[in-house]
């Protein structure tokens, strides 16, 4: 095998680092660059959520960014809670009672809401989903996946 000169080795290393830097920058762009999607005008939303062992109904909710959201939490069996990830918003409803609270949906994305009062064996997994605006992270993940495939294929040196 021919030994490469130190200069060529240095150049190859530089090329390799340049490629890695470009790739990392590309990943950052895919993950964080804002998408030009217009926001729908904010409205008032009144959402009634029934909590029972071990589900919320409805369990998947879609709203727009900026909406003024009022949640009525109704418990149909035992005491349940409602805690929304990413928002400091929590409710607690006694059996047969309704508990209400409001918040402004000022952050976009998909946020899980969970029961915050131990209600039985499956309590830790009593989860619902609130989607505010489009789920851009899912699209970003798909694009990043395509990039991962392309980079993987390009990273293998084929024998000529």
């Amino acid at each position: 095998m021919m030994r490469q000169s130190p200069n060529i080795l240095k150049q190859n290393k530089l090329k390799q680092w340049t490629r890695i830097t470009i790739l990392l920058l590309l990943c950052l762009v895919i993950l964080f660059v804002p998408f030009p999607i217009p926001d729908a005008p904010p409205t008032d939303r009144h959402i009634r959520i029934e909590a029972s062992m071990f589900q919320f109904t409805p369990s998947e909710i879609k709203i727009n960014k900026g909406d003024h959201v009022t949640v009525d939490l109704v418990s149909t069996d035992v005491v349940h809670g409602f805690s929304l990830d990413g928002y400091n918003f929590e409710l607690k409803a006694d059996p047969g009672q309704t508990s209400s609270g409001s918040f402004i949906a000022n952050r976009t994305g998909v946020f899980r809401f969970r029961c915050s009062v131990a209600c039985g064996n499956l309590h830790p997994f009593m989860i619902g989903k609130l989607q505010i605006g489009p789920n851009l992270l899912l699209f970003r993940g798909i694009i990043l996946g395509f990039l991962a495939i392309i980079v993987a294929l390009l990273s293998i040196k084929t024998k000529k």
Binding site: L31, S83, R140, G141
Partner: peptide
Amino acid sequence: VGETTTFSLFFQVILLSLGLFWAS
């Protein structure tokens, strides 16, 4: 009660892309 953070969601996206890269 605990919650998933924005960081953990991004981390999962990066992890899954890494898994796809490795498997590919």
